[in-house]
Design a protein around this nucleic acid. Sequence first.
DNA 1: CTGAAAGCGCTAACAG
DNA 2: CTGTTAGCGCTTTCAG
Lengths: 338, 338
Amino acid sequence: MTTIKDIAKAAGVSVTTVSRALNGYSDVSEKTRLKIMNLAKELNYSPNTLARGLVMNKSKTIGLLVSGLNRESAKDQITFSVLSGINECASELDYDLVLFNTNSTKQREKTYTQLCRERRVDGAIIQGIKTDDPYLQEVVNSDIPCVLIDYPIQSENVGHVTTDNKLGAKKAVNHLIELGHRNIAMVNGHSKAFVSNMRFEGYREALQEAGISYKKEWIVNGRFEEEAGKLQAIKLLEKYPEITAIFSASDLMALGILEGAKELGRKVPEDLSVVGYDDILLAGYSNPPLTTISQNIFQLGYQAANLLIKMLEGTLEPHVITLGTKLVVRESTAKNHK
Amino acid sequence: MTTIKDIAKAAGVSVTTVSRALNGYSDVSEKTRLKIMNLAKELNYSPNTLARGLVMNKSKTIGLLVSGLNRESAKDQITFSVLSGINECASELDYDLVLFNTNSTKQREKTYTQLCRERRVDGAIIQGIKTDDPYLQEVVNSDIPCVLIDYPIQSENVGHVTTDNKLGAKKAVNHLIELGHRNIAMVNGHSKAFVSNMRFEGYREALQEAGISYKKEWIVNGRFEEEAGKLQAIKLLEKYPEITAIFSASDLMALGILEGAKELGRKVPEDLSVVGYDDILLAGYSNPPLTTISQNIFQLGYQAANLLIKMLEGTLEPHVITLGTKLVVRESTAKNHK
DNA sequence: CTGAAAGCGCTAACAG
DNA sequence: CTGTTAGCGCTTTCAG
């Protein structure tokens, strides 16, 4: 394996000169630079980023802590899209990504700070963190630049990107209200997810503004899972048959609700309107196709990486990016005829 | 940032001893070990893997070159599933993953070897490589341990994992033959993909064994894209209306074929049977649901990582792993009535 | 059982 | 414009 030392020897110069030439410093004569460049190519030289990172104390590497990189999460492509977005941006700005092992319990014993420091990543992006995650406190206390996806922390070196979840939820519920629904239930994710709280806020506010008082009993949690969504919907609809519409905090759960409704013999959208959230791929293929709130997950990842790198390179203070959402009307919602 | 030097100072021992204690060597007195361990915890020590990697010449890191980490590939979750599988296994065996930037053209200028050597990865996993990819030759020549997914190279330090594509294709075509079809066309991916070639082999062999001579004109390429699949299917069916069944080398293309058939007014499966390949999520949701060949993509990734790590740790020679496939009959195939 | 010393490959003052 | 020197944090002979 060629090192700068080898090049130096071959060129008859010092390693310093080689280093400077290779890194494009101006204070090297054109002649030596050329000689060194050629030699480097000839000897098939690749710089050792470990050595460089060791002395420079940075690695051009971003650490990724993504929660959903597992078999179960293939159904919505949310994790994948976030990853794609991050990858695209990192690629453009010439950073590499390291995927941390946070799956195994063994690894989970390592703290966030340990993970990042061991690998000497320049910064980190975290997705899928819950409000009770022990990493959370660490992120705030740590001096490692970090961007959170869908979790609202901001500090000296922590920024975050998210979508306007409250407004998104309002759009969904307003759509139902405009269709004449008044008995609108909500299947939420879980109380530990920031987005759940915001979507609930939007739900509540939309009802309020329409002069509809909301019922606590009509709000249930489906843990963002399809099956749980189905079960909760069935329970809900059996107990309160007067419900004519359900707002679901995720498409996956909405898919479950669709199934639940079918089991109960309630036709969607004739007897029940359903609005989802996310606009996952399946939303367009379900039966009926799902009306939902679309968010650009790819962009979420892209912006997260962009923000982090800007922070790392000192061109930007940590801050917050909020992306928009869009109501996509398909066939799971209809006028209320009751 | 605490280093072993700090610990050494605090403990009143040499750095050597600290290093040995921390790494579980036996030749350290229980007393000193304990003292050092406590100090390490107290001072919040994390080892610097860069420094360690530099001297040990390995990094407990696997480099990933995956082709489909981009916006377009979200529709089949193949890339994602591979990634999940790799991640799961790496997690269990305590390796970290680095995602290389192979998207941008800038980065593409770096050779495979450069990429791996710069980051000093212990080995690499490559997915989605084409037969004309310049990386291919490098992989063979390089001394970096590598596992290829779905590409059949084997050498001193190159292994690969794949599924039995030929047999899979045969299962698909045999299914059609058993349903009474004789005029079976094939929409393949592209000639640069190894799996395409194998699936074609399976197609040909199945026909041959059934005593059906195959027609070259009935084999077209849809580049593994939905839209192209649709276009090709339309052209094919218009020109050769006698075709009663199509075997598609991917589900995504099969989805396109379904659409194409609809545009031509040919009902699936009554007027046309379609078999896909992959069993992607959407296959179960299309209209009609797709009969297809299921392969366990997650397992493909998992086994790739497992094989590589075993190779790295010297417990296994590089070799080949071939996974099975399964015919999944849904509603896009039916008896031929002509 | 422990320490001194060398060195992994690279960059960065500093001095010429 | 170039070289000398030191050192990043760690592991590893080699001697005690």
